[in-house]
């Protein structure tokens, strides 16, 4: 029989208790993502001295402050750039980046693109709440069409940014998107993402009742959490319905957000390739010296 750990033991191990309780609003999904990360780290049994957290600016970027491990709270959008630096300095570290949708897709978009392209060994946990919550509810690039924000008072007319599709196109090793209301799939995904060599992106759809929900008639916490249940669908189900379903069914699922693991491949990461390059050049040099 497996000894089941309780949340209390977990909190003692991972939580920086002086910082608790969080500043997050009532009904926010960020705390849930933090807890899933704790469970995943607990399951993996990593040495917490060898794990570094990095974050930018925003609600999601306060998360490393609550974890009893080393963390960087960096400038807006540059969390991934700093994480690349950590990984380059010492590739033994496990780097986990907490970032928000504005931080990762909006302001730090280019850093994200190039880290994914180089396939740098890190785990990016992007918490997507469709809005810049901490700075007052400006429109984020991931907000669905028609959603209302302080900078879009008559509804959003820009098409939303699908960050998972982008990461898949760039060839990231592990790409997954989950909601926060189902615990086991995200915990498994975080585990796989940390274990994976190469870039792994985990997107979480987290409710934000204060900044997003209040303006979009979802201010009630229960209603807002149910919105995520009603407007998401498993990727496999979506594919089946799109292939074999009737017109009516297709119409129903057309606008839903797919959840699931989108990409799971094993491509050599940047630092593996770099080590191979160094070895190759050393070998070449020793041969040329030997030839003289």
């Amino acid at each position: 029989m497996v000894k089941i750990k309780t949340a209390d033991e977990l909190n003692k191990k991972f939580l920086r208790e002086g910082m608790w309780p969080t500043i997050f609003c009532n009904g926010c999904g960020h705390g849930v993502v933090l807890e899933y990360t704790f469970w995943a780290l607990e399951e993996l049994g990593l040495d917490m001295d060898k794990v570094i957290f990095s974050s930018g600016i925003g609600c999601s970027s306060r998360l490393p402050g609550y974890i009893n491990a080393d963390g960087l709270h960096t400038t807006h959008g540059r969390a991934i750039a700093f994480a690349t630096g950590i990984k380059a300095a010492d590739p033994d570290f496990n780097v986990i980046v907490f970032t928000g949708d504005g931080d990762c897709a909006g302001i730090g978009g280019n850093h994200f693109i190039h880290a994914a392209r180089r396939n740098i060994d890190m785990t990016v946990i992007m918490i997507n709440n469709f809005i810049y919550g901490m700075t007052g509810g400006q429109l984020a690039p991931t907000a669905p069409l028609g959603s209302i924000a302080t900078t879009a008072p008559y509804g959003n007319i820009e098409h939303p940014f699908d960050i998972c599709n982008l990461a898949c196109a760039l060839g990231a090793n592990y790409v997954a998107r989950w909601g926060v209301s189902h615990p086991y799939q995200p915990i498994k995904s975080i585990k796989e993402g940390i274990q994976k060599k190469g870039f792994s992106l985990l997107e979480f759809l987290a409710p934000c009742p204060t900044a997003y929900g209040r303006r979009n008639k979802l201010g009630d916490i229960k209603k807002h959490w149910e919105w995520y249940d009603n407007n998401t669908i498993l990727k496999e189900d979506l594919e089946k319905i799109m292939k074999y379903g009737s017109e009516q069914e297709k119409e129903q699922v057309k606008d839903k957000i797919p959840l699931g693991v989108f990409q799971d491949i094993q491509k050599p990461g940047f630092f593996e390739a770099y080590e191979q390059l160094v070895d190759r050049l050393k070998e070449k040099e020793s041969k040329s010296i030997g030839g003289k």
Binding site: A7, T22, G27
Partner: peptide, 16 residues
């Protein structure tokens, strides 16, 4: 243990 896992403030502990 759904309440334990889903609590955003990590306040609940379930003892089987």
């Amino acid at each position: 243990r759904l309440c334990e896992l889903i609590c955003p403030d990590l306040a609940i502990t379930v003892f089987p």
